[in-house]
C-alpha cells in the first residue's frame, strides 16, 4: 500500500528522506557513528586494495616483526601480516555480528508481533520460552550451544540468533500491547481489514524505530561476544581470521607485554566499531520516529 503513492511522486518521497537525513546529520554523535561504521565496513570490504598481504599466508622468515612501513601493524608469531588480518578479520566479525543480529531480529519481530497481537496461549508459550532463554547466563548458553553444534561461523550465527531474539521479542510484544488498543487499529477493523494485515502492515511499522535501535545494539553485542568466544577458543575455528581470533594470540603474558601490536589493533577495531554502531543506533532512534519533528 505504501508503494502506491511512492511510485506516483518520487520527488515528495525524497523530501521526507531528506528531512530524516537532515535530522540525522544534526546529531553529532550519530554522524560520528555513521562515519566510523561506514569507513570501517568499507575498509574491510576493500581489504585486497589496502594491503597486498594474504591474511592466511604463513611466512616463517618474517615472524614477530614490529610495525614498520612494510608491515603496518607488524606480523604475528607465524609471520602473518596483522594489518591484513585485522581487515579480513573485520569482514568475518561484522558478518557474524550483523547476521546474528538480523536473524535474531527477524525471529523476535515475527514472534513478538504474533504474540503481542493475538495474546492468549501462543503468547504464554513464547513468553515462557523467552524467560527460559534469558534466565540462563548468556555466555554459558552460547558455550553450551557452540560445543553442541561445533565450532564454525554458521553455527555461531545460529547460536546468536537463538539467544538474540528475546530482547526484540519483548520489545515488539510490548509495543504491540499498547498499539493494538489505539483507535487506528479499531478503525482498520471498522474498514474490514484482516487480522494479519493489521498486525504486520499497520502495527508493525510503528515498532520499527526501537527495533532498528535494538538491531544495532545486538550487532555490537554479538561482535563483542564473538571476540570473547574466539578469545577463549570456542568461537570461530582458529584458521578463520576474526577480531577475536587475532586477539587469541594475546592469551600469553609475554605477548601482552612484548608484542602489543598483536592485540592493540584488533582491540581498537572492536572498540571503535562497537562505539560507532551504538552511537548510530542512538541517532536512529530519534530519526525513525515519524511523529517527532
Amino acid at each position: 500500500m505504501a508503494t502506491v503513492l511512492a511510485s506516483k511522486q518520487k520527488v515528495k518521497k525524497s523530501s521526507l528522506a531528506k528531512r530524516n537525513l537532515q535530522k540525522l546529520l544534526n546529531n553529532k554523535l550519530a554522524v560520528f557513528g555513521l562515519i566510523v561504521v561506514t569507513a570501517m565496513i568499507l575498509a574491510c570490504i576493500a581489504a585486497p586494495l589496502l594491503t597486498p598481504y594474504d591474511p592466511m599466508k604463513i611466512s616463517l622468515s618474517e615472524r614477530d616483526l614490529e610495525p614498520s612501513s612494510n608491515h603496518l601493524f607488524g606480523t604475528d608469531k607465524l609471520g602473518r601480516d596483522v594489518f591484513a588480518r585485522t581487515l579480513y578479520g573485520g569482514r568475518m566479525s561484522i558478518l557474524i555480528g550483523l547476521s546474528g543480529a538480523i536473524g535474531g531480529m527477524l525471529l523476535g519481530v515475527i514472534f513478538g508481533s504474533l504474540c503481542g497481537f493475538f495474546g492468549g496461549t501462543l503468547d504464554a508459550i513464547f513468553v515462557k520460552i523467552a524467560e527460559l532463554v534469558s534466565v540462563v547466563p548468556q555466555l554459558l548458553l552460547v558455550l553450551v550451544l557452540s560445543t553442541f553444534l561445533g565450532a564454525g561461523v554458521q553455527n555461531l550465527i545460529y547460536v546468536f540468533m537463538f539467544t538474540g531474539w528475546v530482547a526484540t521479542f519483548r520489545l515488539v510484544r510490548g509495543r504491540f500491547f499498547s498499539l493494538r488498543e489505539e483507535s487506528f487499529v479499531e478503525a482498520c477493523r471498522a474498514f474490514g481489514i484482516g487480522n494479519l494485515s493489521i498486525a504486520f502492515k499497520h502495527i508493525l511499522p510503528n515498532c520499527l524505530g526501537p527495533v532498528a535501535v535494538q538491531l544495532t545494539l545486538n550487532t555490537a553485542g554479538f561482535i563483542l561476544q564473538e571476540a570473547a568466544l574466539s578469545f577463549i577458543g570456542l568461537g570461530v575455528p582458529s584458521g578463520v581470521p576474526t577480531w577475536g581470533n587475532i586477539m587469541n594470540a594475546a592469551k600469553e603474558i609475554i605477548v601482552i607485554t612484548q608484542s602489543p601490536w598483536l592485540w592493540i589493533p584488533p582491540g581498537i577495531a572492536i572498540a571503535l566499531f562497537v562505539l560507532g554502531v551504538n552511537s548510530l543506533g542512538d541517532g536512529m532512534r530519534d530519526v525513525l520516529d515519524p511523529s517527532q519533528l
Binding site: 500500500m1 483507535s183 487506528f184 478503525a187 471498522a190 474498514f191 511523529s291
Partner: peptide, 28 residues
C-alpha cells in the same frame, strides 16, 4: 465493514496510522 457500514471515531488524532501517508490509508 467499511463497504456497507462505515464508522468514524471520536479521536481523529489517533484514528490514523502515524507511519502511512494519508492518501495511502484512504486508498487502502
Amino acid at each position: 465493514r467499511g463497504r456497507q457500514i462505515s464508522m468514524i471515531f471520536q479521536d481523529p488524532m489517533s484514528s490514523l496510522n502515524p507511519v502511512y501517508r494519508i492518501g495511502d490509508q484512504i486508498i487502502e
